[in-house]
Design a protein around this nucleic acid. Structure first.
Lengths: 376, 376
DNA sequence: ATTAATTTGTCAAGTTGTTTAACAATGTAA
DNA sequence: TTACATTGTTAAACAACTTGACAAATTAAT
């Protein structure tokens, strides 16, 4: 149910008074009085987004209009444990701020994404499959002390979903799933723009769905998990085996064989390498089975596929679409669109910024006591 | 956020005035003034619940306190198509009402459950896997004309979830999944007591999750769907094969072999028949893989398993629990309880009554214009 | 150029659902 | 009896909205 125009006037007056928004250039329109366009008032304050992956750390600083001011990314190893990793994050954030001549005091909230299931109340990860040493480490408390501002701790796939929903391929969709294909594979679910956590913050963990009861062993101890078939390691391993078996592929130029990575396979596929394309096509097909399961259970109207491998585009997405079409209910399969992340590797960072902004804006609204001194 | 006592007083006064609730016997308490207990005012009006399964049709009539007044169930074949089936439902409803000496005019709303994905706005099923001839047939419109009161059309598993949440094993759980194991297998998902439909009403359709890429053919054209491994037909077929292969089982007393049903297998298992127990244990194990997927994606804190086979109890549930424990994320697996439906075969009917009651109570509140003549 | 139509924004008055704070009612325990 | 605990009610105040009238700013029609 929408608000009346009169109510909107009142609310907008508050926002103008507190300088959270300001009037922008009005655009002309077919007929009638042209509307007053509003925009977020950038002010001199900022938020930051921190995206920790398994193998990279990326930090962005953004203004209140969600425009990225500065951005840095470095290689990273989440397995080094919380102390080392959080210190690296601290250094990189301060470097990033320094380059943009912004002081940490101007940063009013920071969104943080990590590749594991989150207990949001506690601000920590619980029993994460790929974050050794992080179990129940007080991430949010540590960072709040380190940076002196409120921290929103989230799962990276959930942030990807949020980022794509707010500024990417998922705009306007009520039931959105974002699939992050990287070293691990996870999904973030969004209902009406709200992250769906589930009971314990581990909703959307599709990495260990059983795809083939008799498939290859997974690190989790089961056979035929999605991650064991389509994850970064699995793709690299298949490529290494192909080279080892003397298959014709440009990947054989890479030496030693053990250094071939999923990224190499993706690059080779883009250049037309057949073996690489086959490997990715099979991986896409397995991912499709998992997404078909997600579609049958969650019934989204949009699935955004992100992460390094997804950037290849249709070469990877077509087998995914085919598997979904075949293996999910007609009603659900017909309603769902499957597409690549529009924000590319920035999906999660953008989501982190969105989370930081909601905190920062709430602070603004409360701190300046909206509505207190409005009418006379 | 809870309401203040004063606000509750005001609301309760409205409800008393409109005679939707009334005061009941007050129970004594440790100390302090004893509270005034309220109960729904049964009045002379009723609602009905209609549960159409693949092979049974069941109808209940209930008062406004959700007490079942009368109840009837007959064998049924949903494949006979909408006209025949809806006429049968009509006859059975009128018989049920007649036995309780209630006229159709006293029934103010009816909840209806069918085993297929629902387009709620349209009041019809869309591309249902096991309801031949029903696709896009205007079920709700037909029934509203037939019965002259508002109809709520729902998926049967969703109703099961609602019923168990309101009056069964799922009371108090925020993230509930109800698994209906029958001829088909479906799940109903509940978030904070609200049915989660998904984008097109086909959320929770786990019957055709791929469990084993190389498993037996399913009616849907794929291999190794859950339904092809654990559905009623699959269980019956496995039992028939066992008898045919000369296995020692009390099922061999049934003749001809083709008449052995899933119900027979369940009965035999309860009586200690080893072959039957093995079949059900394997079926439970496969169901467990599917539920593990559901747990990883939806992350519920309660899974209620209903339908005929589930009534066997732990003999069937233990392999389910084991598979879930092994194949879902520790955080999610630890948080989820898995149990049998408390309402037994009545889960869906109860859910249908709950849906009917929300409609009926809304009508009451609107029709009598609550709050209009409250304070002089 | 004037008028009409259209759309957007604002104002004043009234309504609704709530909170707050005081207090009354009704029980048990010392 | 008195103290206390708990529950229910009342009146006043208030926040957030709706309604309906109207003002403002533009395009299209006459």
């Amino acid at each position: 149910m929408a608000l009346s125009r009169a109510a909107v006037t009142s609310i907008v007056n508050d926002l103008l008074e507190t300088e959270i928004v300001r009037e922008a250039e009005s655009r002309s329109v077919n007929s009638g009085r042209p509307p007053i366009i509003l925009e977020i008032n950038p002010s001199g304050d900022y938020v930051a987004g921190v995206d920790m992956g398994a193998t990279h750390l990326s930090i962005v600083v953004a203004n209140y209009a969600a425009n990225f001011i500065q951005e840095k990314e470095i290689p990273f190893d989440i397995a080094l444990g919380p102390k080392t990793c959080l210190n690296q994050a601290n250094e990189l954030l301060r470097e990033t701020l320094a380059e943009a001549s912004i002081s940490i005091e101007q940063v009013n909230a920071i969104g943080v994404g990590v590749p594991g299931p989150i207990a949001s109340d506690a601000g920590m990860v619980v029993a994460p499959p790929i974050m050794p040493g992080w179990d129940r480490y007080p991430i949010r408390n540590t960072l709040e002390k380190m940076w002196g501002c409120p921290i929103s701790l989230n799962n990276d796939a959930e942030l990807g979903a949020l980022g794509e929903w707010a500024y990417g391929a998922g705009r306007g969709f009520r039931n959105l799933a974002y699939i992050k294909v990287g070293t691990g594979i996870g999904a973030g679910l969004l209902l009406d723009g709200q992250i769906y956590h589930g009971a314990t913050g581990s909703a959307g963990e599709i990495g260990h769905l059983t795809i083939d009861e008799n498939g290859p062993m997974c690190t989790c101890g089961n056979r035929g998990c999605l991650e064991a078939l389509t994850g970064g390691h699995a793709i690299a391993r298949q490529a290494q085996e192909a080279v080892h078996n003397g298959k014709r592929t440009i990947l054989s130029e890479i030496a030693p064989v053990e250094r071939i990575s999923a990224q190499d396979v993706a690059d080779a596929a883009r250049q037309g390498d057949l073996i690489s394309q086959q490997i990715l096509s099979r991986a896409g097909s397995h991912l499709g089975i998992a997404i078909a399961g997600l579609v049958n259970i969650f019934n989204p109207n949009m699935v955004v596929v992100g992460g390094g491998v997804a950037q290849i585009g249709d070469l990877f997405l077509e087998p995914v679409r085919q598997a979904v079409q075949r293996r999910s209910l007609p009603a659900a399969a017909h309603a769902v669109r499957i597409t690549t992340a529009l924000l590319g590797r920035r999906s999660s960072s953008m989501g982190a910024v969105v989370q930081a902004l909601t905190i920062a804006l709430h602070q603004l609204a409360e701190g300046k006591e909206v509505r207190k001194t409005l009418v006379v």
